[in-house]
């Protein structure tokens, strides 16, 4: 058996890549492409999806995924595979602030259920839902590697640890005042 390790093949490479994304988005993706061997542009697919998702208010669309495929010379299905495999990509609209609450074992021991209850009551939504005003999405996530600060959640790029209902309130208060990150 011969072992092969090659990028996904795409024969119909798109020529007009400039038209796909804004110059800023392209520059950011290009920075990632530069990290990998020339023929392995697809290594930048995770970064590209993240960049494009951030640029689109936190979620991906079929059109955006196709553009990423075109930009990186990947078959679209290979991009869909990546976008549906990793949990940080959102495939439908999310709120301005995505609250990712860890409920895994250490957080659970330290009372994450109370935090979830409190969040659900305060926001009037259940896990997996978005508030009507589109400000908050509540998402249950797996261990975020901050068990020493359990219970915890992540909003945007920020970790919030050692949560109590009072602390949750003050975090949400400040986010509500600050419209959009």
């Amino acid at each position: 058996m011969t072992l092969r390790c090659e990028p996904w093949a795409r024969a119909d490479k798109r020529a007009d890549k400039e038209s796909l994304f804004s110059p800023q988005v392209r520059a950011e993706i290009d920075q990632w492409i530069a990290k990998y061997p020339d023929e392995w542009k697809q290594s930048a697919v995770m970064a590209a999806l993240r960049i494009v998702q951030d640029d689109n208010g936190g979620y991906l669309t079929e059109e955006l995924m196709n553009k990423v495929a075109d930009y990186l010379d990947m078959p679209p299905i290979a991009v869909y595979e990546v976008a549906t495999f990793y949990s940080m990509y959102e495939l439908s609209k999310v709120g301005t602030h995505k609250i990712c609450v860890c409920t895994n074992v250490s957080c659970m021991i330290c009372g994450s259920e109370n935090i979830v209850d409190h969040l659900e009551k305060r926001l009037g939504i259940k896990l997996g839902q978005t508030t009507e005003d589109g400000k908050f999405t509540l998402k249950e996530v797996e261990c975020l590697g901050a068990c020493g600060g359990a219970p915890m959640f992540q909003i945007g790029r920020q970790y919030y640890e050692n949560l109590t209902p009072e602390l949750v309130d003050s975090i949400l208060d400040s986010l509500e005042q600050d419209n959009g990150e």
Partner: peptide
């Protein structure tokens, strides 16, 4: 030509065209 793929993961992994 890669048209079929396996999207999603775990028990939810689906073979198909996705779109």
């Amino acid at each position: 030509i890669r048209e079929l793929g396996a999207t999603g993961r775990g028990e939810h992994m689906k073979i198909g065209v996705y779109v």
